[in-house]
Amino acid sequence: MSLAEGVRRGEVRATAKLITLIENHPESAVEDLRALHPHTGNAHIVGITGSPGIGKSTLTDALAKRWRKDGAHIGIIAVDPNSPFSGGALLGDRIRMQELATDPGVFIRSMGARGRLGGLARATHNAIRVLDAGGKDVILVETVGVGQSELDIVRTADTVVVGLVPGMGDDIQTIKAGILEVADVFVINKADRPDARRLMMELQTMLDLDPERHSHWEPPIERTVATTGEGIEMLMAAIRNHWEHLTYSGELEQRRRERYAAELQSVVEDYWRMRFFEYWQREGHWEQVVEQLLRKETDPFSAARKLVAPFLDSESRRVNL
């Protein structure tokens, strides 16, 4: 039985194994992903992002528990950075999700970003596809959250939840650093702290300054104390509202169209790149060409064309065969 079949049957082991394959040997996972593709598109993909210390994992945990009460099946992917020196990673997000570990309706996967800088791992996107095809209703994706470029999540999630915490000192800077644009829902966590109100007002002021951008959907600002569960009900309602808005306004389809276009482009690029380098590992004389460049016997532009031409030939022969 293939891993994809196992995933479709909701088998934990197969799901886990396929995600590992995606992480380690993505080219070997293509068959399974192909088989799963028709079964995707049903899950609501929710991104949770924000600086370290805002309680992303605790929010994720609280939201998952709340959704479970309604019987929804939940997938969680939590991404952490890898050490740039050793390549290793400490993945500690599950500590805040201990109670979910044995819930058969929840699948949690910790992921190292493995050098990628956009807030997710290269494998996250296809891991979501696996969970989606495996019948998860909601997939919560927790980003690395280094507070800077969290662009991946915009390309991946249907709803992006941006968390802030009062008294972190860098509130306004964080907001300015482009988070305003990516948020579909804001949540001020640890809202029992004294300066929560002030943060909320500042945030609202900034949203009001830019009404054009939010003409279709104005991001609501929710307040939670995730450790006690306070405000989680409202947060979930806001996330669901956004989902309904996406569905009924046709924006969901538009977003997914854009997402597929982007994905197609990157798959094509990856595919060609892979084929080319395979070819070059067999046939290449890269260093010779570099020497020629050095001696000014050729220029990079002509050289590139000369390099690619025989590759294209061999590809077309392959296709014609």
Binding site: G87, G88, L90, L91, G92, R94, I95, Q98, S110
Partner: peptide, 14 residues
């Protein structure tokens, strides 16, 4: 931490 520094991905659950 030692396993991390040896290049492994380490999940710790508390």
């Amino acid at each position: 931490r030692a396993l991390r520094d040896a290049g492994m991905e380490v999940i710790y659950t508390g």
